[in-house]
Design a binder for these strands. Structure first.
Lengths: 225, 225, 225, 225
DNA sequence: TATGAATGAGATTTCATTCAT
DNA sequence: TATGAATGAAATCTCATTCAT
């Protein structure tokens, strides 16, 4: 598989001798493939369907990605890269720790709400026991920054004396992710069983506030401090 | 108890030994199908593979369930029935509200940890936009007791003055479910990315305590009360 | 195949010792089978579908008719018996020959128009190269009376000097049948291609008059005679 | 000539020898499929049987025609196209109207006698209530020329004063078609019941003469004119 | 690079028929 | 006579992948 470019997907065309369409063709395929796999899963996604919605042909999919699985992996890597990029764009270092937590929670929840494809791909990947994630050089070397961001905020809060309880950073991250993820990933079953649409703006707002409160509570945030 | 016992196909076989034994055949198929679908999803699951691991033939799958989708739906319904049964067996009515919450959280988390197949099926169903769930008369009339149980505890806690903050019951339920669900559903990607196995006993214990603390915090549990 | 009762299907129950339901069960099966085969053909008709619309079970179909083909044959025989019965009820012997021809043509056309199932079964049987017809003792011994009826009319007409041209009786019968049959059997393709519904009352009337005219013409009917 | 030549897929292969040769593959499949469907009907025809008698594989049938029904429709369209082509090749414009009628009747009867596959396919299609015909853009826009041809002859005959009776053109066409069609379509049942083989040359000749006479009679052909 | 045709293996589903009681 | 369960064989259709140019 010749795909594992650790540097995500930005690279603005490089101006080499090869036809300038190559990158565009690959991007076109990946965009469609992402929709297809997010919609139907790896087993349910159809190479034919992807090719049909692309400017190019099936042969090119194999030329560039080697196999259906190779394409799926590329899609997965791209999705994680985007998440990493979004995470690393947050600048919470100058905020009051409680406010930083609030903004981090909101950003995380919003990321998930706005990227249902990503959530679906992660669900799908877990159905496959994260087999592709595990096999991906790219993703294993991908530094997810969420923990670092959290670490900084918590350290500052503790130094300032506003966070008073000890809590494992990974647990804290899991907590924030779990709620954010569940709201999107389980939206359809939850909505069906309980009649609540978790996409509604005020439900969304309420859940973010709830999560912020819970997280601050776990950190032992002393409001008065 | 407002829960209308919609038959969950338990009834232990009226006449002991029947002729060619339809119930056993169906149960045999469903047991195997559940494994197959939970493992590979609806698209990835193979009717052939199911039949091969069964005492009967592929033909009988169609005889009893009509189609692969029909079988999947039957499996899904059964899985939800079991969860409902487990939920309704909890008797927390006599416990102190805080203790009841703790036990409810623990039971919920344990249910999920011990039923990874259920969690996977729900993920899969959400990938299908809960289409089968929505189409299932059985499941739509299935009274999920979780909310009732929660309602009772919260009402008692509030009456006793130990729960001091207002919180929506559905949000509370979502909160507990989300953490319980994510721990199992996203175990593989989380483990791969962060190097933590959420199945380990002490992680599990820690997460349950964390969730209990968070929930009690959201309820405004005043320990001294 | 135990079915070949030359005497068609009348026999009013016989009052023997056997369960009185036997004949009714058979008749029930045949009624449904006739619909099914007329609708979908021999290959397209489904034993399951027949059984499902019957008061009895699939097993009984095999008990009484031996096989799908046996049932089809029984249906075919019954259909031809009914036609024979209808034909033999015509009493044209006392009419003026030209009037008799007119009534015979009308009756034939009406028979076909009112028995689309029969027409369809005959089409289907011809698709099978009349294999079942050829193999049927019952039908081979069935005296189709159409030719006799025609023969009588033509003989009388010729004796009276009103039919002046010689014409083969079988050709004459073919002529009348062909138009009557085509109107029903090819109704759907004809209607689609030419936008004319041959079932409409005035089209039907027109065609009957046309056919009568043509037949009388072929017979050299001299009106003034 | 008001006939819009809707392409009937004739075009003799633009580039002589192509690469893997799609047209030949399709034509090969259709030739065999036509035999199979004409022989056994849509329900009775087997895709496997078609593939086996072809130079290619079953897979290609689905590649080119999508489904068994798609292939059947293609066969049906082709059969109708051929008929239209045959019809449009008749040049009766310069003949005496009575002679033109005779040749038209003979050609129509001959067409049917020489294309039993076409007749069988039309029977089969009528069993299906002309559902495929109705759904076929191609066939619905196919201008059947028979009526035009007839119209021209009748108009000339009337202008010349040799055709003296008014008659609906569609009825006239129905008449000619019905006899021609019945002779082939119902050959087997008719032969079985009445012991006459309608394929025999002198029967065929006799029927053509009979039909010509009847048609001219309906037109009020005055020989002396 | 690019393309349309081709394909083998295997997927789901169907069907007439029979068995056990 | 009656019934529901069972079945083997074969039907239709699908899919990722590769070939020839």
């Amino acid at each position: 598989m010749k795909v594992s470019k650790a540097r995500c997907m930005s690279e603005p065309a490089e101006k080499t001798t090869r036809r300038p369409d190559a990158e565009r063709t690959k991007a076109d395929i990946m965009r469609v493939a992402r929709e297809e796999f997010a919609e139907h899963g790896l087993a349910g996604g159809r190479v034919d369907a992807i090719a049909a919605r692309t400017q190019t042909t099936k042969r090119m999919i194999y030329y560039y990605f080697g196999s259906k699985e190779g394409l799926y992996l590329a899609v997965l890597e791209q999705a994680y890269c985007e998440i990493r990029d979004r995470e690393s764009k947050l600048s919470l270092a100058t905020l009051h720790p409680a406010e930083a937590i609030r903004q981090l929670v909101e950003a995380t929840a919003d990321h998930h709400d706005e990227s249902p494809d990503f959530v679906r791909l992660v669900c799908i990947e877990n159905i496959h026991y994260a087999r592709y994630l595990k096999g991906s050089e790219t993703i294993r070397t991908l530094n997810l920054t969420a923990i670092d961001t959290l670490a900084d905020i918590v350290a500052r809060g503790r130094a300032m004396g506003v966070f008073t309880k000890p809590i494992d950073l990974l647990d804290l991250h899991m907590f924030i992710s779990a709620i954010s993820f569940y709201r999107v990933g389980n939206r359809h079953s939850f909505g069906t069983l309980f009649g609540q649409d978790m996409g509604e703006p005020d439900v969304r707002t309420r859940h973010k506030r709830l999560l912020t409160d819970a997280v601050l509570g776990l950190l032992g945030y002393a409001e008065a401090a």
